[in-house]
């Protein structure tokens, strides 16, 4: 425990954040909100990674690198996703993921 905070506090918090984000992904009726919640999940993962880096191998940089790459990917993904949503909005006048269901059969 570093500064009196055991590792598992961070782990539980990140798990909770992750699950909240998961709920939002599955249950929100707006596509933009879904992507917002995806960002929450990615943040949770980052917290996890950094916590593990700090508590277990603070000398190595692999955890940090991983977290850095997640930053990059999250950003790229948010950009592309939102661009897609704009496009869909323009064509279908709707941002409801439930209405976009032509990917069946």
């Amino acid at each position: 425990m570093i500064n009196g905070i055991p590792l598992y506090w961070y782990l539980i918090v990140s798990a909770a954040l992750f699950c909240i984000g998961l709920y939002g992904v599955l249950a929100r009726k707006n596509a933009i909100a879904v992507i917002m919640c995806v960002e929450l999940m990615l943040n949770a993962v980052n917290i996890n990674l950094i916590a593990f880096w700090r508590y277990i191998t603070p000398a190595a940089i692999s955890g940090l690198s991983f977290a850095a790459f997640i930053f990059v990917v999250a950003a790229a993904e948010a950009a592309v996703g939102l661009a897609l949503i704009i496009s869909i909005y323009r064509n279908t006048r709707s941002v409801d993921p439930e209405k976009i269901d032509s990917m069946k059969l």
Partner: peptide
Amino acid sequence: RGNSQWQAAAFVGAFLF
């Protein structure tokens, strides 16, 4: 606020947590 499957999602989320 929530779509048609929010209950299942809440449950699964809680369970996973």
